[in-house]
Amino acid sequence: MDRALDLTAGLGRAAILVLRGAGAVALFAAEALLHLLRPPFYGRLFLRAFVEIAWFSLPVVALTAVFTGMVLALQSYTGFARFNAEGAVANVVVLSITRELGPVLAGLMVAGRIGAAFAAEIGTMRVTDQIDALTTLSTNPMKYLVAPRLLAGTLALPLLVVVADILGVMGGWLIGTQQLGFASGAYLKATFDFLETWDVVSGLIKAAVFGFIVTLMGCWCGYNSGGGAQGVGRATTAAVVSSSILILASDYVLTAMMFSR
């Protein structure tokens, strides 16, 4: 009886902590978004963040996409051969990549790169008083540090996912034509015949949400970093873990919303 009470009390406490954290993050995000509406705007900082996210994540995202497309083609071919549906390989590859794997894998890769980098950078600024210094130098740190990064993440990830979609399909096509014996034209025709705009667009919307999540958690964890090198280390880990989990969880919610017919 006591055990059960302890357990429920513990769960309750945990739930309260999670809810309080979620509320704080939501307020943080809302404040940053409001700053996007009011000048001054930091175009230079937005561009720097955009380049860091879009351009420098390109190699990882590209490699991930190519290999995923290749694996998908192989797996679906051998799997579908069991019920003589090898012909569906091209469709399976393009649908899986555009709807699901493109955005999710790009999101997770960017979470590792950018979430960690932002948390470390902003966390270091926190523990070395640079964020306080901004305030004393007539600059709002939310507007200067957080708002441009959030915008950059939200816009850059869809761009990365467009590249991932193309390269993922190419990876599938490569295996399909070189190893599985599809004719190049027929494979591509099968790829595009059944593809709907919404398949791609839904993936890009997901990407925008994931980009927002990654940059938000990176900024939030850095901004609230505890003292010293250890605090910054913890902030970095927390940013990567929390944004990865939130990507997967929100992916479910988004998918349910977009495709529940």
Partner: peptide, 30 residues
């Protein structure tokens, strides 16, 4: 705060910016 200057204990210089931009940060911000 526009009228207050502060020298932080550990400097708190912005290491992503060159010295000249650090020095004129407030004038640029204003």
């Amino acid at each position: 705060n526009d009228r207050i200057g502060m020298l932080f204990q550990n400097g708190a210089l912005f290491d992503s910016l060159p010295v000249w931009e650090n020095v004129c940060f407030k004038l640029l911000a204003q």
